[in-house]
Design a protein around this nucleic acid. Structure first.
Length: 321
DNA sequence: TAACCGTGGAA
DNA sequence: TTTCCAAGGTT
């Protein structure tokens, strides 16, 4: 467990190389990054206070593993159509899945709709502020709960996404990239660096994320443009290569069940009504993998079997309930 | 813990 | 063309 005093030492050691008169404190590190953020933050719609906590929650779910550029138009449409949790909760899964379009991981869309129902029924239509209540929402994990706490409620929380993990791994840890799985030491380090005040800590979280997204990127960081380059442990160490290289498995895609599921669901999104198995066969060749993918989609509630008047199957469609 | 869950742009 | 990666969560 790193104490705040030890943290200040760490930050001071980094700042000592800054060469600026009066530098050498965590305070300077915070100022440098917060100033940079004030001048360079993107004008994203969910950062507008008018977006509200619901708008922030929607954005956070959509942004899970999905680039900002792809999310923005879908978020705008979504908020116009379902401006409150109750609105979304009243929508059909089919409508929600079509509005989700091709953001990917469509189970997120169903969970967001379920979360909207919980918020509408159990929280009087307001996004909860208690961490336990946030974590109880479908599709909300440690990152999203912290992000909503910080960015919507403007309260102190440790926000650790892929950007923050990478920035801190470099800035403090001297590593090219964070370890494959989140370690307790990373959370402790992030907590130690978090400013005490609610609003300051919220800005700090956003600034770290923005730095990771715009400057301290995974592949080709723009170190000359970095406001904290002079205190970066990774840079001072000579920007060594990723020590975890080789332990990161890249997920296969071509020919996988996931690709099959994606094709089948894309066909059903585009269809006005149920599709027969023969029609679905245009999206993916029939066989064991087709069967497995369809069964998985049914089990996940992403697809429903349509039953005819005689009880026989008429085909498959996006769920209406 | 590790595997699973979509999609598409950039290098 | 292949690989990497993007504001993770669930099981």
């Amino acid at each position: 467990m790193t104490t705040p005093v030890e943290l200040r030492d760490v930050a001071a050691q980094g700042a000592a190389g800054a060469g600026r008169a009066g530098s050498g404190s965590a305070h300077d590190l915070h100022l440098a990054l917060l100033d940079w953020f004030a001048a360079n933050a993107r004008d994203l719609p969910w950062r507008d206070p008018a977006a509200g906590a619901w708008g922030v929650l929607v954005s956070e779910i959509m942004l899970q593993q999905t680039p900002v550029a792809r999310v923005e138009p879908r978020w705008r449409d979504w908020m116009l159509r379902w401006p409150t949790p109750a609105d979304l909760a009243a929508a059909t899964p089919a409508d929600v899945l079509r509005a989700w379009d091709r953001l990917g991981y469509p189970r997120r869309a169903l969970r967001l709709r379920e979360a909207a129902g919980v918020i509408a029924r159990e929280h009087a239509g307001r996004v909860p502020t208690a961490m336990a209540a946030l974590l109880a929402l479908p599709g909300v994990g440690s990152y999203t709960a912290a992000a909503v706490t910080a960015f919507a409620h403007r309260r102190r929380a440790v926000v650790l996404d892929t950007n923050v993990r990478r920035v801190l791994a470099r800035l403090i840890g001297g590593q090219a990239l964070p370890p494959p799985s989140l370690l307790a030491a990373e959370s402790e380090r992030a907590l130690d660096l978090l400013p005490d005040g609610d609003e300051d800590s919220a800005r700090w979280n956003a600034a770290l994320m923005e730095l990771g997204a715009l400057v301290c990127t995974a592949r080709a960081p723009s170190c000359p443009a970095c406001p904290v380059r002079s205190v970066c442990a990774w840079r001072r160490a000579g920007a060594p290569a990723d020590s975890h290289a080789g332990k990161r498995r890249t997920q296969a895609w071509h020919g996988t069940d996931r690709q099959a599921r994606g094709r089948l669901l894309a066909a059903l999104r585009a269809a006005p009504g149920p599709l027969t198995p023969a029609e679905l066969a245009a999206a993916w060749e029939p066989g064991p993998q087709f069967d497995r993918a369809l069964a998985g989609l049914l089990a996940d509630g992403l697809v429903a079997a349509e039953t005819g008047p005689e009880g026989g199957s008429e085909g498959y469609a996006l769920p209406l309930t």
